[in-house]
Amino acid sequence: MIGALHLAFWQTTAIKVAVVLGIIPAGALILGYVFLLKMMSHMQSRLGPMEAGPHGSLQLIADGVKFLQKEDIFPERADRVVFALAPIIVLMSTFLLYVVIPVGPRLSVQNLDIGLIFALAVSSLSVIGILMAGWASANKYSLIGALRAAGQLIAYELPLILAVVGVAVQAGSFNLQTIVQAQAHGKIFGVGAIGNPYILTQAVGFIIFIIAAQAELTQTPFDMPVAESELVAGFMTEYTGFRFLFFFMGEFGTAFAFSAIGATLFLGGWFVPGIHGGLADIVGPAVVFAKVMLVAFLIFWMRFSFPRLREDQLQAFAWKFLIPLSLVNIVATGVLKVAF
């Protein structure tokens, strides 16, 4: 991948698979520990888990080991094949998201020309997994949860894809690597010192993207599908042990990936002012990680701050506010692009 080292296709692919296999659980653990366990606790004036490891840092690993020892239960009336396939599809959607995220000028798993569309397409695969899980459980709560999830995910899919069109217009490409380069070489009123991170010109797009990502991840203001006070755990109710954990990993792995896509589209990805060429390949992953934590912080901050929206409010917000707003954003971006 770097310099004079020449590796065969299967060797680089094996390295990439190994790296992503490490990143997904690590990303889920970091987001789960830093934000879900610790930040939420401290925001609510309590300590959170403190026993496993220093400051409770090994709590989620302990939970994982616990899940590993749980009995594997299929409900008697469940559709067994679909029930077993559902978490695989959710996890597959998470895996495929990592294929296109660039972490350096030459570092990305696969620099697809339609990277942006690819990311949006595979992220919506998880809807199918969720519907399968809810249907195959043969449980009324699961089915209601799955339908609510599907209704919500498709309603917020539209603002999500319309919000990123503004970025595509500005960069003139769907290639995530090109979008980062366009931000790195961009100029603000003729000054190119910090490039042109699109959060400045696409602020409306960024806000719509964050809200829609929040809904796609079923994080709290939008957590009707798994509302525990009325639906137990929604589509996950009948899952035990590791099969349950796959949904958890999918949720937090996708949160990590969505934060990375948000950072790539709006915060300049791996770019930091003053670092170019080979050095950017080395510093890049750390820069992306820092920006991911920033975007994830926003998402989890919203999660801990707002109460749950009602189903009708949730749909009305998407259709009557976010979609018209994102269409206006596209028009404004297009007019400004042609005018200047």
């Binding site: 692919t13 992503v20 695989i88 996890l91 495929l96 798993v109 696969q110």
Partner: peptide, 13 residues
């Protein structure tokens, strides 16, 4: 590569 990553998800599960 995309196909291999789909396979990797199944393998991990």
């Amino acid at each position: 590569t995309v196909l291999i990553f789909m396979g990797a998800a199944v393998l991990m599960v």
